[in-house]
Design a protein around this nucleic acid. Structure first.
Ligand SMILES: NC(=O)c1ccc[n+]([C@@H]2O[C@H](COP(=O)([O-])OP(=O)(O)OC[C@H]3O[C@@H](n4cnc5c(N)ncnc54)[C@H](O)[C@@H]3O)[C@@H](O)[C@H]2O)c1
Ligand SMILES: NC(=O)c1ccc[n+]([C@@H]2O[C@H](COP(=O)([O-])OP(=O)(O)OC[C@H]3O[C@@H](n4cnc5c(N)ncnc54)[C@H](O)[C@@H]3O)[C@@H](O)[C@H]2O)c1
Lengths: 208, 208
DNA sequence: CATACGTTGTTAAATAATTAACAAAAAATT
DNA sequence: AATTTTTTGTTAATTATTTAACAACGTATG
């Protein structure tokens, strides 16, 4: 298994999410068409993705749920796990921490940062918030390799730079301001307004 | 101009976001490579997208910022605008309303819904929260055509169904639970954990 | 005035992703 | 025991998206 398509990586994450629910319900095997139904995609695509990761199901019984979960874990997770920091504990940052907490064993939000003294030293859904000036030190000590940016858009570039300088390897930017990072840093950006405008466009054109 | 690629639609939304900032700074013209720089893409892609929407810049001066904003508006927006509702006013729902408020003239969040009596009848960042049972009536009266789902995952299918029955044409689901909608409804789903796991995967593999 | 430069617009090529097609095989059915 | 059914695994075809190539053409420069 060499180069998994980006889209396959995304879907593996989604498959696992669905599979974990199946497993918790006591389901031991699952067919490609069942996974496909849940994810609104075709069974072929599911089979192809699973082929790409080198797993083999049993004919007429489908895939073993737990084995597939474990194998996806081998691909997506690192053995020791990765640590994550959230910078900017406003509405969105707080929502993120609260949502993520305990959802994955191999990815943990271990620190939060904010510049507002009212936020500093408080605990948000189990995660301590530190002053932004302590970021370099804590990122290093806690071996944090991923940063999530949820500060106001104007502060995004400066926060991004701080994260990069502190040694983070990946950034997830939820600010509407695109940030620049050296190319050895993996950057993912998401803006809700783009999604909403996309929905609006298709709503508009579908009616035409 | 017939079928714009989905990816082009997304980028048009992003271009406009960047262009609006340029315009507010008094910049009247912009080159494809400047837009490209901001969005971390290639100038060719920018030119190609702009070609697809039928706009023409001036050689050596680039594109007229305001004209381009207006044209993107013609494509993405409807003349009368579209109304949006948010269902589930917890951390994320509240953050959404707060963020979106006033960002676009042609898309407005006009109503919020929740099942919790503590939330009902309160105003969140200028948007009134109604009881979920009033959804059908309000969606109809307010001509709401897009619904954003930010309830707990377990309630997503039921909320989705309610939105569809009420006549909504597009849904943006922020729940990790994929929902099923009839195919004439446009559905967009987003989960932060998938994004984070994708970043983690590339952080992991880059180091190998 | 001529030449070099920078930028657009567009077609063609390359790459990425999805979908179709179908052989293989195990289980179920006759 | 033979046949049908069902489902996987895989290759091939198709479609979507990005990237490259380059002509056209103003503008600037010598
Ligand atoms: N709320 C949403 O749904 C939503 C959606 C998409 C994007 N966004 C974006 O996410 C960002 C955060 O949104 P929000 O609603 O949580 O905003 P917010 O104002 O509630 O929170 C921002 C937080 O960042 C802190 N902060 C400011 N400057 C900082 C700095 N330099 N270093 C560290 N911390 C700093 C503030 O003290 C505050 O706590 C914004 O850029 C917004 O555009 C929000
Ligand atoms: N918080 C995040 O960053 C984040 C990120 C991605 C996804 N999500 C998802 O978004 C959803 C909301 O997250 P949250 O942190 O805001 O949760 P939350 O518990 O803070 O808010 C949920 C809200 O929905 C309301 N609600 C519950 N059932 C309802 C129903 N049937 N009809 C109407 N309202 C109902 C609740 O009263 C509550 O106000 C969850 O599914 C979560 O998994 C959250």
């Amino acid at each position: 298994m060499k180069h998994l398509p980006h889209k396959t990586i995304e879907r593996l994450s989604q498959y696992r999410r669905a599979l974990l629910i199946c497993a918790s319900k006591g389901k031991t095997h699952i067919f490609s068409h069942e996974i496909a139904k849940i994810q609104h995609i075709t069974p072929v695509q599911v089979r192809r993705d699973i082929m790409l990761i080198g797993y083999t199901g049993t004919l007429r019984k489908g895939y073993n749920v737990q084995e597939l979960i474990d194998l996806i874990g081998d691909i997506l997770d690192t053995h020791e796990g990765l640590n994550v920091a959230v910078v900017g504990i406003g509405n969105l940052g707080h929502a993120m921490i609260n949502y993520f907490n305990g959802k994955r064993t191999k990815l943990s939000i271990v620190a939060a940062f904010d510049s507002n003294p009212d936020k500093v030293d408080r605990i948000f859904s189990g995660v301590k918030c530190h002053h932004i000036d302590q970021l370099p030190e804590i990122v290093k000590n806690e071996k944090i390799s991923i940063g999530i940016i949820t500060v106001p858009a104007g502060s995004a570039p400066e926060v991004s730079e701080k994260l990069v300088n502190a040694g983070v390897k990946g950034i997830l930017n939820y600010t509407p301001k695109p940030v620049n990072v050296p190319k050895h840093i993996y950057l993912e950006e998401y803006d809700m307004i783009t999604s909403l405008e996309k929905v609006a466009f298709f709503v508009k054109t579908h009616g035409e």
